[in-house]
């Protein structure tokens, strides 16, 4: 899968916090950072420190952090700049821009922490505990399972395309083969969904999802 997906279940000090609390904590950091006005910049700084501490405890490497920020920051800088640049006479716009940058960065880092400490099964359990409709949770679980399979299938289709295009294609050809690739992926996936539906029926599926209890899914 993509290199920025933490597939392996992390083990570290952050595991001491229950899964529900991890999600709640992240949301709390994001809300607080959106509510603190710029004048209280020390509070923003404090939040940044907390989030950084969390990231290092979760074992996020600096290289990974830098890679993600390299993709994230330029867009944010441009978007933030667009407001004061259109109204140079307004002093407040610059302050607004800085607080936007701060808020977005803190939220982004908090999100990064979350994806490192919340394994997917834990997320499903949390959603069930928060009374998320079981049907939606079942769909989410199902989707998560097949993302990996479709990803592999896409890689195979890409390889087949490269083999035929000899590496380079014209702009138009790229579009057509890409669209074919998605079309083929869609067809195969929907056919697979029909077979999977039969496999579910064969094991007594009646349309209403049932889940293992929370103690059971936690594992050994």
């Amino acid at each position: 899968m993509a290199d920025n997906s933490p597939v392996v279940t992390p083990i570290g000090p952050c595991d001491a916090i229950p899964g529900t609390a991890r999600l709640a904590l992240t949301l709390l950091v994001i809300v607080v950072s959106s509510l603190i006005p710029l004048e209280h910049w020390p509070a923003h700084g404090l939040l940044l420190v907390v989030v950084f501490a969390g990231l290092s405890l979760a074992g996020v490497t600096l290289g990974y952090l830098a890679r993600r920020l390299m993709l994230f920051l330029p867009m944010l800088l441009v978007f933030g700049l667009s407001v004061p640049i259109t109204q140079l006479h307004r002093e407040s716009a610059w302050g607004w821009m800085v607080s936007l940058w701060l808020r977005c960065t803190i939220s982004f880092l908090a999100g990064l922490w979350l994806i490192h400490v919340l394994p997917f099964p834990e997320l499903l359990a949390t959603l069930l505990r928060w009374r998320c409709p079981p049907l939606l949770v079942a769909m989410l679980a199902f989707m998560y399972r097949y993302i990996f399979i479709l990803w592999d299938e896409l890689a195979r289709l890409r390889q087949a395309r490269e083999a035929r295009n000899f590496g380079s294609g014209s702009w138009k050809r790229d579009w057509v083969t890409n669209a074919q690739m998605i079309g083929l992926l869609l067809l195969r996936a929907m056919e697979r969904a029909e077979r999977t539906h039969q496999a579910m029926l064969a094991r007594g599926w009646d349309g209403s999802p049932k889940f293992l209890g929370t103690e059971a899914r936690k594992g050994e």
Partner: peptide, 13 residues
Amino acid sequence: DRAVPLTGMLASV
């Protein structure tokens, strides 16, 4: 009863 496999698969696609 097809809701979960079809929608989940569509989301994956």
